[in-house]
Design a protein around this nucleic acid. Structure first.
Lengths: 188, 188
DNA sequence: TTATAAGTAAACAGATCGGTTTACTTATAA
DNA sequence: TTATAAGTAAACCGATCTGTTTACTTATAA
């Protein structure tokens, strides 16, 4: 038994290393050493490194969005508050010393082939995040919820990259201020 | 002679490949094959692959900012127009079929060590871009030019990543609309 | 008890990595 | 003409890459 545990642990380790060092730079040997799992076991669970990358991205997709949404719901009561809380949650994220930017943005940088499954997963993740923002916007009864979702999503991306590249976690505050203006403008 | 030509050509090739495939995924052999330059010659010009990466980033830093600023100046007369033109220039960039996101953002994703020279060059590039936006903002006599520079820079980052990951070059339009609001609000 | 499934450690494979060296070929300028 | 600098092609190096295989060790459940 103990089957789910091994697989899970490999994915967890993979997420950690891919986040910090990137995908090509993370070797299988290093990963297995860190995970304390033998090579045979890994290749029993995943057919290739790419399969492990897919699994890691898929797992992270679910976990991240779940945590993110929970944190947003916890931080705001009304839909408007929740929309703004997005940036507070992001701020907390940026200040984590294990913050290395968005795993999916980083993945796209290393896999540029247009039909790559890795790109597809990343695109889907962003779509699902957008869906969530759009839902909140609809709940808030704003004029054009999808437009507002576009705007707030773009602000979030900008904050993530600014926090990552320019080492400015306070980019979340800038994004929040802009977001507040846009939400106010969009309120009926 | 012909010395500058070889070095330049290696850097040009490096920029192209690093942009499209990333840094770790681009092997020296592949690069040299594409450049039509022998290995010995390359290692005569650059002490290591990392040195070539530095040189490529530095070159791209200069060229990109020069082209970007020229395009912005050409597209707008008044400082306000120029501030908005940033997003038009970005839009054109996003629609280039050789658009693979920002070279520096992608670099950060592969090199996470805090004191890495690659990170430093990338941080500097973003700083210099910010400086330019801040200059334009000052010329436009807005209330808080540096705050506006923070905001517009963040919007630009957001647009770049959205165009790259979600394959939506029209993110530039979204960013421009938000930018217009912020500029208008900041006008004295 | 014993068959089975899942694990480990480690050798191995072939390719590729970054980087060096050797032998030969230009081109140029004194 | 000839010394020099810069180039090429290709062999070579040790390390590392992804992935496979072998031999042995658990743990579990019939």
């Amino acid at each position: 038994m103990a089957r789910p545990s091994r697989r899970e642990h490999l994915i967890e380790t993979a997420i950690t290393l891919f986040c910090e060092h990137g995908y090509h730079a993370t070797g299988i040997d290093m990963l297995l050493d860190k995970a304390g799992v033998s090579k045979k076991t890994m290749y029993q669970h995943f057919r290739s490194k790419e399969e492990l990358i897919y699994a890691a991205l898929r797992q992270y997709d679910g976990v991240f969005r779940n945590n993110f949404m929970k944190a947003v719901e916890a931080a705001g009561k009304t839909p408007e508050e929740k929309l703004l809380a997005i940036f507070d949650v992001a701020h907390t994220w940026f200040n984590d010393n294990k913050f290395f930017g968005c795993m999916f943005i980083n993945a796209i940088g290393e896999y540029s082939e247009k039909d790559s499954p890795i790109r597809e997963i990343s695109r889907q993740f962003k779509q699902l995040m957008w869906n969530y923002v759009a839902e909140l916007a609809k709940d808030a009864n704003v004029k054009e919820p999808e437009k507002l979702a576009n705007e707030l999503s773009l602000l979030l991306e900008g904050a993530i990259v600014t926090a990552q590249v320019s080492q400015k976690p306070e980019a979340a505050v800038t994004a929040k201020e802009i977001g507040k203006k846009l939400i106010d403008d969009a309120m009926v």
